[in-house]
Design a protein around this nucleic acid. Sequence first.
DNA 1: CCATGGTAAGCAAGCGCTTAGTCACACCGC
DNA 2: GCGGTGTGACTAAGCGCTTGCTTACCATGG
Lengths: 197, 197
Amino acid sequence: MAGMSASTPLPDARTRLARAAVDAFAARGFHGTTTRDISTTAGMSPAALYVHHRSKEELLFELAHAGHLRVLELVRSSVARSGDPLTQAGDLVEDFVRDHAVSHTGARVINYELAALSEEHRSEILAVRHEIDLVLREVVERGVEAGVFSTPDPHMTSLAILSLGIDVARWYRDEGRWTPDEVAAHYRLLALRMLGT
Amino acid sequence: MAGMSASTPLPDARTRLARAAVDAFAARGFHGTTTRDISTTAGMSPAALYVHHRSKEELLFELAHAGHLRVLELVRSSVARSGDPLTQAGDLVEDFVRDHAVSHTGARVINYELAALSEEHRSEILAVRHEIDLVLREVVERGVEAGVFSTPDPHMTSLAILSLGIDVARWYRDEGRWTPDEVAAHYRLLALRMLGT
DNA sequence: CCATGGTAAGCAAGCGCTTAGTCACACCGC
DNA sequence: GCGGTGTGACTAAGCGCTTGCTTACCATGG
């Protein structure tokens, strides 16, 4: 039970910086956020950011990289729960969409702020993103071969399905009309219809 | 024929500023773009921007407002070409998606840079956007009533269809795998499937 | 002769990041 | 147990530069 206490303890400095950075980047964008914004929201002096990160850009990269790896693990675990493509695709969409609704703040950062990264950092992120794409695409292609899905272009259809999920991060609001579970369930239906089931 | 010449004439200053601003805002975001970026790309001194626009923020607003009104007219003309909901929805999606692929640079600005606007300007844009939403939603609802569409939540489904089209602006690239017409045609099919046809 | 559209120069504020130093604390030989 | 010492987290101060925008001025066509 080390590190635990009754009420929520103050998170350590790195975590506070990361949380402040995600919120600020999501609300005002990378270039609209100052290092002073981040550090003072985290309860520290401006220089403290540089104790933990080499630069503002590298802080964004670390957030985006960790976020993408988390999503990759999420979708891999979604398809690992079943053997048939219909359940796999449905579960993947449901998990992916729910996550983008619940974590819409973080998802905005990792999807809409990539242009601020250096060439090398951006391509490292895009490599992870390509892996995510492949997970769904292989499920769709196996479903088409098995005759449970029917689509004239499996590649574009799987891209569109993930695209649909990503855009949830743009429009979803916590105080909005639907819960994450409601959006996820409806999007599962929409995706399976797109796949011709 | 006033103002025309054989080869492309140098556009007037306002147009050059607008074009430079769209390209810069799309590539680096509002806060990542400097007024010097815009004005020197347009072939003018930094101060020239303020001859034509009151501020950088107002320049963004004018671009976003004009862009949204253009899309509103586009979707209204799409549904005006037919009487039956199936053709109306299909035409709307096809036109909307083609436009977001062709004009992906402008579409990125008007969809992803709204957070940089003032409260008043942003809400003025959101009002136009609401009108765009309503055009599709009414087509979908009429289709459901007529029995040609079947969806448990017409509201969320029409939102998802527009969302799908907007996200095209994020991932579409000119040198990519598909032409705007190919994406538009495939997305028409996907949208109609989402509507249960 | 003046409205229109442009420029050169620059101001005040804010930017990312660095430097030099403080402080709490783990670890050490004794 | 104890002073000495090294180490990592953090801050106060500020540097050099860039930012959005203004001011004062100039050219030119109607």
